[in-house]
Amino acid sequence: MVPITTLHYLVVAAALFVLGVIGVLTRRNVVIVLMSIELILNAVNLNLVAFSRLWGLHGQVFAIFVITDAAAEAAVGLGILIAFFRNKETVNVDEVDLLKW
């Protein structure tokens, strides 16, 4: 029987991070891009909590701060999305060109 170590959790977190990056880069719907960003933040949280087994509880406190920031980011991002949808009637990232010169 193999004991579960920090390395195993880091592998899961790396997989989640890569999947989140793929989602940010390939999807067109802004809502799914925001969900992929949440996936990346979750991978970071898993890393922090896994390393808090090695280095003490500060990692868990930092994970709580990351969760709070992710909630704030989701609220502001979705607010921007609603304001944008009201102007342009679309949620595709490649049609977001209001700032293009």
Binding site: Y9, V12, N45, V49, S52, R53, A63, I64, I67
Partner: peptide, 18 residues
């Protein structure tokens, strides 16, 4: 997974907030 790591509070916050 957080519970398996012993992070009880973070697991609860994960379920409630996320």
């Amino acid at each position: 997974e957080y519970l398996l790591l012993g992070a009880e509070f973070v697991a609860a916050v994960q379920v409630i907030v996320y």
